[in-house]
Every structure is written in C-alpha cells, then in structure tokens.
Design a protein around this nucleic acid. Structure first.
Length: 275
DNA sequence: TGACACCTGGGT
DNA sequence: ACCCAGGTGTCA
C-alpha cells in the first residue's frame, strides 16, 4: 500500500515539469505564488499520512502541509525505489526524491497524468482539505454503509446512473464502473433512482463494492489502451460485461447490448438482464 | 439540468 | 485528418 511505504519518508528535491498541473483550492481563482510553489508541494516535509476519498488522494506532511491529487481519468501517483537515474517517462509532471530519516535516497514519487484532466492542489492543513476541498463529496463508495447508500441515491428525480456518477452523492464511481455495477445488479441505467426498491439498491451497493474491488485487484486498469510496465494489457477490461460492448451479444442472455447517452455519458446496458 | 471546455492517443 | 472517450469545473 502506498501509505505504508510512504509514511515517514521525507520529500525532497521536487521537480516541476508543468506548472499548470498545480490547481487552486476549490472556489479560488489563483494557485500558489511561484515563490511558495516548492514549499506548497511539500518539499522538505516528512509524510505523516496518505488519504483517499473517492477519486482523490492526499499526502499530509508532519508539519501540517497537505497536497491533494485529483486523479481525473489518467492521473497516476507512482512510488518507485529507483532513484534519480531513472529516465523520465512521457507526461511526468512532478517528481520528488524520497529520503529516509538519515537522509539516504530511498526512491522517488512521480505524478504522471497523460490526459491532464487531473491536478494537484496544495492546502495548508487537513482541516482545509476536509472543509474546503472535500466537503462537497459524498461518502466514499467503498466505505459507505448500505442504508446511507440507498438513502442518498434515492433522493431527487434523476436516473440511477446519473446519481451514481454524481460525486456529491457518492464519491468514487466512474462511468465504466457505473455501467458494470448496474449490469450486475440487473438495473436499467435510465430508471429513476427514487423508484427503485431498497432491496435492489442494496444489491447495487454490493455490486459497486465488488466491481471497484475487482478493478483495483486487476491493476485498476480500465482504459482500453492500458499497459503495465512490461507492456501487458491490464486485466479489468477483459471482464467488462457491457461497457464498450454496444451491438454485441450479452454473455449471459445473448440479447444485443444497447448504447445511448445518459446524463451526458456514454452508457451501455443489456435490455434482457437490466430492468 | 445541461452543454461545453479541457487534453491526448487510438481508432476510423 | 478527424472523432471520440474519460472526469470535473464553469457557464448558460
């Protein structure tokens, strides 16, 4: 786990390749001043904790400084035991040296984000992280209690898929996993969430947990083009039941999988299995 | 509530 | 050469 390996490491020698991956705190218009940049990127700080909520990560330093990472669709925080000699890969935006308490180099931390939909946001404290940056997020999809999950999804009049993707309702479910979870739960993505029974939403809750855990185990790969460092395909897309399979037959009931947009997102579902 | 912008690589 | 997908912030 990133947290265990990073804790108590000192972050030094930050290299900033692209300044524009540094984003302002929510609701503000300007990012940190250039003179404060390296300090805001935790340079010189020791890692006290690593946090995650939905699709966001954060590193907290012992002195209180915090750096939040919004993953977007291709953001990737890598810990490696290689040191500075490691050649730069495409789309590396930030790089830190990691030192142990004796000041010995122990590796690097690298922020890479090819599509640049993500970004990093410096914050003065964990309090600011929770109250300013993460306050609008719903409960994390892998931690939320079943009753809370059901109650939140049922609010309003939107389609169930729209609710699932709304990070203020539930944090952590993206488009692909929404489609896959709805398939497993046998729920049509365009049905109004408020009209779905609690027991079926309970089923959806378990499907969301299962899909996210399986995807994480498979290497978190969902993008068609994903390759691991050895060039192998990532695992999870091989098990997509509906996502990206519009026009093909459902493996379960042989019905043709349909596609349309729901809440502005590409959506695929099996009319035979999902009602 | 929705449309659009951002960005890039892969598919057509 | 063009179109599309992804997540989220911003605007109408």
């Amino acid at each position: 786990m990133l947290g265990e390996r990073m804790t108590s490491m000192r972050l030094t020698r930050v290299q900033v390749r692209r300044v524009d991956v540094i984003k302002p705190i929510k609701g503000r218009r300007t990012a940190v001043r250039a003179s404060q940049r390296k300090r805001s990127l935790l340079e010189g700080g020791r890692v006290a904790s690593v946090l995650r909520h939905g699709k966001r990560l954060a590193l907290a330093a012992e002195d209180g400084r915090v750096l939040e990472f919004g993953l977007g669709m291709s953001g990737h925080l890598e810990y490696t035991e290689e040191i500075e000699s490691r050649p730069e890969q495409p789309h590396e935006h930030l790089r830190w040296r990691l030192e142990d308490s004796e000041g010995r180099a122990r590796g690097m931390l690298i922020w890479r984000d090819p599509r640049r939909f993500g970004g990093v946001t410096p914050l003065p404290s964990l309090d600011a992280l929770r109250k300013r940056q993460w306050s609008h997020l719903g409960p994390d999809a892998l931690s939320v209690e079943e009753l809370g999950f059901i109650a939140r999804l049922k609010e309003g009049s939107a389609a169930i898929k729209t609710r699932l993707l709304d990070q203020t309702v539930l944090a952590g479910v993206g488009n692909i996993y929404a489609d896959e979870a709805l398939f497993r739960a046998g729920i049509n993505p365009v049905r109004k969430a408020s009209r779905i029974s609690a027991s079926r939403l309970g089923c959806l809750h378990r499907a969301v947990e299962a899909v996210l855990s399986e995807a994480i185990c498979a290497g978190g790969s969902s993008i068609r083009t994903f390759r691991d460092p050895e060039g192998k395909m990532g695992g999870f897309q091989e098990s997509h039941a509906v996502y990206g399979r519009q026009g093909q037959r459902c493996e379960q009931c042989r019905t043709l999988i349909r596609g349309r947009t729901v809440g502005g997102r590409t959506t695929a579902w099996c009319p035979g299995c999902q009602r």
